Structures are given as C-alpha cells and as structure tokens.
Amino acid sequence: MIRIYPEQLRTQLQNHLRPCYLLLGNDLLLLQESEDSIQAKAQLLKFNEHFRVSLEDVTDWDTIFSLSQVLSLFAHRQTLLLRLPENGVTATIEKKLAILVSLLHPDFLLILRGQKLTRAQENSFWFKALSSNNAVLVDCTTPDPAQLPCWVKNRAKNMHLSLDDAACKLLCYCYEGNLPALVQALERLKLIHPDGILTLPLVEEAVTDTSYFTPFHWINAVLSGNSKRTSHILQQLRLEAREPVILLRYIQRDIFLLLTLKRHMAYTPARILFDQHKIWQNRRPLLMQALQRLSVQQLYQAIALMLKIELTVKQDYSDYVWADINALGQLLCSNTLFPTAMIDV
C-alpha cells in the first residue's frame, strides 16, 4: 500500500488511478479536496456512475456487492464512496469490507473515507487485503506545527503566490488548526495582490487570528515547554469560551503522571515505565521532554497552584482563573518569569 499526503495525491493521480483509495484523518478540508481530486480523475476515465454509503451495522451489503459485479460491455464504470463509522469499524463491517475488496475490478473504484487510522485497523484482514490490492492511503490529518509552514508554502506555490518566511510564520500563527480559513486568507491575498508577492506587512493588513485549538493542543504545548505557544493556545481557548475546569482535569492527569514517573525513573528505565502506564508512542517524546525539564519541586508547585485554581472556580469564579491557568502553564514550561508567590493557597 502506498502512503501519501494530500499534496502528493495530484502527482499520483497523473501517473495511475488505483483501484482503491483510503482517505483517513481529521481534517475536513483535506478529506474533501482529496475526494474531489479522485472523483475528477475518475470522471476523465469515464467513471460516470457514483454511489455513496455511510456504513452502519444495518447497511444493506447485498446492494453494495451488486454494484461491484463485473460490468457488461456497454455498462458504465462506477465509483463507490464508503464513509466509515466515526466510532470505528465493527467486526461485522470488517468482514464485509474484506469481501468487497476481493470483488474489486478495473471498472469499479472504491473510496473509503474515515477518521485517523488505528493500530487495530492496520492489523485487520480487510486492511491487509487492501495493501495487497495496490491501494493508496491518503493521510488527511491536520498538519502539526512543525509541518504547517511547509504545507502553507506548498499551497501558496500552487496558487502562484510568493510568500516570505515571516509572512508564512504569521499565517501559521493565525490559522493553525483551521485550514479552511487559511486557504480563504490566501485566496483573499491573491485577489488583493495580483502580482502574488506577499511580504509580512501585506499579510499583517489582511489576516485575523482564527486558529482553532483543543485542550490537547494546550497540553502538548505545555509538555513541550513552549511558553509562547502555550499562552497563545490558552488565549484562543478562552475566546472560544472553553470551560476552565476541563483544562484542569486534563492537565492534572499529566502532572500526577509526571510526578509518578519522576519518582521511579531513578531505578527504572523510562521505556519500561511508559509501557507499564500504557502511554501511547506519540506522547512519549513530549512526556520525556517534560521529565527532563521539570523537577519534583516544580511539579509540587504545579499541584499547589492547581488546588488554588480549583478553589477559585468553585468558590468565586472570575476572569482571574484564566490568569492562574496561564501561570500554571508557564510554570510547567519552566518559564523563569513565573511568580512563585502565586502558589500560596
């Protein structure tokens, strides 16, 4: 199975249309654009009948199987798009997908669209069957902060825009996690500046901060020790009227986990501790950064500050709670400007 990113899909489609495409990820813009590109290529190759089905346990699979039958000489070529369930593929659906994969032929194009790929799905029979049928997996996950600048520059280049590094950095800052708004901003800049040359002053005049974050983005920024990013994300969460208590619940779990790991690292390797606590592989580097940066004393200070915030929320909720949460984030980022007096409770 070929694994590519959406920006690589156009080149792949120019070479050859594969019998099956898996569009998996959390970004609606990337999912839709990838689907549109595949359908447009299929249309050029005379795939003139298109069907869509959202899979459930009660799906009529006999109808789906009938679509995949080998066509007569004068029949139309067909595409079938199946939306995988948001809560995961059940055992029943897995069995049916495995059968469907065995029925693929040159006049029948299968497109599967769903959430991020899980390890269980990778090990499933239907996924392995697709791997042996020249399928293509398109990773439609929203680019992370490290990948986003490259994505923005590639998108700008495809739109015949010249973007300097400072302008690109500003766009990433203002639109992280919100690719539809980012693309709209580039389209708007292209209209305003037909010559396509975009510098920082020109971009500053046209953009607004519409980045989109979840509490998990804030947690990851805290664990990585990026104090500026931590404050930016928290400000956006506040503007979106997120509940402070939710942030507390998420961060306190990681603080107590860090304290436990810190106590045992002196005589137990980190890898073994991570395995014992069933920590996902993609979180381990972030936790390791925090473990190397934070002392036990700082973690106890963070616990004391969490208690102060908890009392503030329960007794007399006010805007001051956001300042305290920001102080908590800065403490965990090891920001030396953190006022230690704030932890008195």
Rank of each mutant, 00 (worst) to 15 (best):
K190N: 10
T210M: 12
K169M: 14
Q236P: 08
F213R: 00
L186C: 06
H217D: 05
W218I: 00
Y173K: 11
I233V: 15
E187N: 12
A181N: 05
I233T: 08
K157S: 14
K157I: 08
E176D: 10
N178I: 02
S162C: 14
S231T: 12
K153S: 14
N226D: 15
E187K: 09
S162Q: 15
N226F: 01
A181Y: 01
C168G: 07
V222D: 02
S231G: 09
L182G: 03
C168P: 05
Q235I: 13
Q236H: 14
T199R: 12
R229P: 03
D209L: 10
A167L: 05
V207K: 00
A221Y: 01
Q236K: 15
L171M: 12
V152Y: 02
P215D: 01
I192E: 13
E187Y: 03
P194D: 13
E204P: 03
L161Y: 06
G177A: 09
A156G: 12
D164W: 13
K190E: 08
E176P: 00
P215I: 01
L171G: 07
D195E: 12
V152P: 04
L198Y: 01
L161G: 07
R238E: 14
D209H: 13
L182N: 00
N178Y: 01
T214L: 09
E187G: 09
D164V: 13
Q235S: 15
K228N: 10
H232I: 06
D165C: 09
T230K: 06
P180Y: 08
A156V: 10
L171T: 08
L237D: 00
L198Q: 02
R188V: 11
E204C: 07
T230L: 04
L200T: 04
H193W: 09
G225W: 05
E205M: 06
L191Q: 13
K153F: 08
S231W: 00
D209E: 14
V183A: 14
E187P: 04
S224H: 03
L171W: 03
L179Q: 05
Q236S: 15
P201M: 00
R238Q: 15
Q184M: 13
P180C: 08
A221T: 04
L163T: 01
T199A: 12
K228H: 10
C168F: 05
L171F: 10
K190A: 09
A156C: 11
L198D: 04
H160S: 15
F213H: 11
V183L: 15
K228M: 05
G225M: 02
L182A: 03
G225K: 01
L182Q: 02
E204Y: 05
M159F: 12
L182H: 04
V222T: 11
L189A: 13
A185H: 07
F213P: 06
Y173M: 11
Q236Y: 08
C168M: 08
T199W: 08
V222W: 04
W218L: 04
L179Y: 00
E205A: 11
S211Q: 12
